[in-house]
Design a protein around this nucleic acid. Sequence first.
DNA 1: CGTGCCGGGCG
DNA 2: CGCCCGGCACG
Length: 356
Amino acid sequence: MEAERPPAPGSGCGRPPLRAAGRDPAAAPVSVPAPPQGPAVEFALPQEPEPRAADLGAPGAGAAGPPTPSAHIPVPGHRAPPGKARLDEVMAAAALTSLSTSPLLLGAPAVAFSTEPSLEPWREAPVRPPGSGGRSGDGGWGPTSDQSSPSTPSPPLPPEAAHFLFGEPALRKRKSSLQGLFQCLWKRCGKVLSSASGMQRHIRLVHLGRRQAEPEQSDGEEDFYYTELDVGVDSLTDGLSGLTPGSPTASVPPAFPRLEPLEPPALPSLLRPPALPPPPVLSSLPAPQGCLAPVHPEPRPIPVRACAPALPAKPGANPRKPRGDAKKCRKVYGMDHRDLWCTACRWKKACQRFLD
DNA sequence: CGTGCCGGGCG
DNA sequence: CGCCCGGCACG
């Protein structure tokens, strides 16, 4: 009844304002983000020692005191005097520094480990077409903040730069080999495809206005305009154990609350080959590949038609849309996760996240 | 009946 | 403007 949608955010009730919290990246303190506890494989390389980070590593340990941070610890092969334990600390500290410094700048360090946070940074980049000063709030996708990104003021964030920062775009993708969907992050597009390459093509042609030069290969610019999602994963409402109100996880961009290892119960309907009501309406086609049935099989030639119907149709002629068959927020997240829906859906408008 | 969303109302 | 909902059409 009432409990469902708390009118007042922040009321001690039990459900904190999910998105309010997660939606302000600028609020993130500049303090140390507590580096991912996980395997640090990638960034193990010794870096320029940061004096600052050093003291954070072992503030109290006077012994290790000297500011000569040992980025690459010599670690004397044979010498395990009483100092041994301490040595560990030093190592840990050093490791921490290298960790805490590098990823800090990136803003999207945890890519490999957690899905959600990584989305944030990207989503701001792509949007903002030149001519429009105002973006209509379209909910979860581009809107959060326009200029909160501390680094580059330029709108779509030169992909080249991004490359340097994030290394390889591929890195992001490998996070889940699961048959995710790929969603276009372009402002009002949000197209969802089931293959990365398809998505790249989509972005290249439709948004970047590029030639069809290289089919599957390119500089990777498109990578920054789409994201991979493991949809529906839990969406099963009841099993929202991970999403407890008040848990920090909940305050993050609520887009897709789950990690990959789980088998998404919601996906099957889309991707499962066997019988069952086939989603696609276009049956003129002999099903492109074996497994992944594209959500929206797109014919080779993609005209300039981006995503707006742009039909001169006037009211009265053929007003009602045929109603797309894509899953909408309501279906995906369920009624009791209304706060995860895209704004449009929440307002009973045409869904903008999963558009057809 | 559930669902998607237009049209319109309210602050 | 953002936000919400009545109500209709579709399935």
